[in-house]
Every structure is written in structure tokens, then in C-alpha cells.
């Protein structure tokens, strides 16, 4: 890999980091926990790398590490999304958005 490609990849990282910083803003307290859960779930994107490691030519240590990494990442993403979903359902059942003013 030449140094030019390294720079492209670094640039992508820097831009993505800026987007991540700016996209999260003005989050109401109500959404702190669901968003925390979702952010954690997507950090399991490294499953993409883990799949390659697990699928490489068989070698005991590497395969065990790879399979465990895939399992940990998938557990993170599936569990994370499910829990986020259940939290949001709880909100829908609650009184969010109805306010506390006098009823006419």
C-alpha cells in the first residue's frame, strides 16, 4: 500500500470523525439511553473484519479468535438493536409528548 492510499484512508477517518461529532447534537434526555445503546451497537462494525479472520485458512488460534470475535460482535449488535427497540416501544406506551398543561 503506497503512502497516497494511506492518506486517503486517514482522510476518510478524519471526515467520518467530524460527521460523527456534528451529527450528535441537541439530544433530549429521553433519548440518551436509546442513543447510547445504538451507538454501542454500531461500534460492532468490526464484525466485518472478524468475519474475514474467522473465514481465513484454518489455523487453530486464529480461527478460535476470529469465531469468538464474530460471536461477541454479533451479540453486541443484535442485543443492542433489540434493546434499543424495546426501549423505544416503552416510550410509545408512555405519555411522551402529551405535555402537562390543562386539558380543554
Amino acid at each position: 500500500m503506497d503512502s497516497g492510499m494511506i492518506l486517503w484512508t486517514v482522510m476518510m477517518f478524519v471526515l467520518a470523525a467530524f460527521v460523527g461529532h456534528h451529527v450528535i447534537h441537541g439530544v433530549p434526555t429521553l433519548l440518551h439511553t436509546p442513543l447510547m445503546s445504538a451507538t454501542n451497537a454500531i461500534s460492532a462494525i468490526s464484525v466485518v473484519g472478524a468475519i474475514v479472520v474467522a473465514g481465513s485458512e484454518y489455523e487453530l488460534v486464529r480461527t478460535v479468535l476470529g469465531v469468538t470475535a464474530v460471536a461477541a460482535a454479533m451479540c453486541n449488535v443484535v442485543g443492542g438493536f433489540l434493546i434499543t427497540e424495546r426501549m423505544l416501544k416503552m416510550f410509545k406506551g408512555g405519555d411522551v409528548g402529551k405535555g402537562k398543561g390543562h386539558q380543554p
Binding site: M12, F13, A16, F18, G20, I24, S43, I45
Partner: peptide, 9 residues
């Protein structure tokens, strides 16, 4: 996505 999550978190 790693970079996005780093700063989003």
C-alpha cells in the same frame, strides 16, 4: 463507521 462512532460516542 469506526470514525463516525468514535466521535458520536
Amino acid at each position: 463507521v469506526g470514525g463516525l462512532t468514535t466521535t458520536a460516542g
